[in-house]
Nucleic acid binder design. Structure first.
Lengths: 106, 106
DNA sequence: TCGATAGTTCAATAAACCTTGAACATCGGG
DNA sequence: CCCGATGTTCAAGGTTTATTGAACTATCGA
């Protein structure tokens, strides 16, 4: 299920960016990914990521902050996320990952 | 593409068994997987595994021996295969992987 | 209260996927 | 030269998937 999730380019790009900013301890809003695709398509992918246990959502008012469930994943599938993210980082240019336009929290 | 391949339970089971017998340096025939599914369905999955570069086929007479392309994979996606196989081995019982009925080479 | 914003949900469509069975090609043994 | 065995290829089906736009809910600020 996790592999299926990460085999989709849009979702891999989301996870890739979540990981990048997670290490910078900056929370990302759903809207930060608006460049990736249409909003409803993103909601679809977010739901899949949540179902697969890859991502966690914190609701604050009208915006939702997403966070990678790194600890849970490392416990369940040790090393998997690191290996996949490392490979993704290595050919990030070939994959043409979109970048998030992060907006500072209010 | 590799992730997509491994996200299918049938193909993951094939790769899992290939890895198991590969370390025992025993080649597996396509027919060794006949318990997994119908022959034509297996041919379909074998083709996908070949396309994704996960597997290599050696033709000897009328039978085909399959081998994991471990070196190539480790070069392209370092650690990925090991991590996935380790996770697969850890809950092999939950996944209910079929076992190969290996027939000694003639 | 009104309007704008953030996301989700729903319905619909096109593409990809898995599975099946029948037909086919190929090799080895009698 | 057939026969049986090994796999592949093809056509058909049913299911899942990704994507889109429109409708909807909920929150915040003026």
């Amino acid at each position: 299920m996790v592999l299926d999730c990460l085999s989709d380019p849009t979702r891999l790009a989301i996870v890739y960016n979540l990981a990048k900013y997670d290490s910078a301890s900056t929370e990302l809003r759903c809207g930060d990914f608006n460049a990736f695709s249409g909003k409803s398509n993103l909601a679809y992918h977010f739901a899949k990521l949540r179902e697969a246990g890859l991502v966690q959502t914190r609701i604050a008012g009208t915006t939702r902050y997403m966070r990678l469930r790194r600890a849970d994943l490392d416990a369940r599938f040790p090393g998997l996320l690191d290996v996949i993210l490392a490979s993704a980082a290595r050919d990030a240019d070939r994959l043409q990952f979109p970048e998030c336009e992060v907006v500072a929290a209010s």
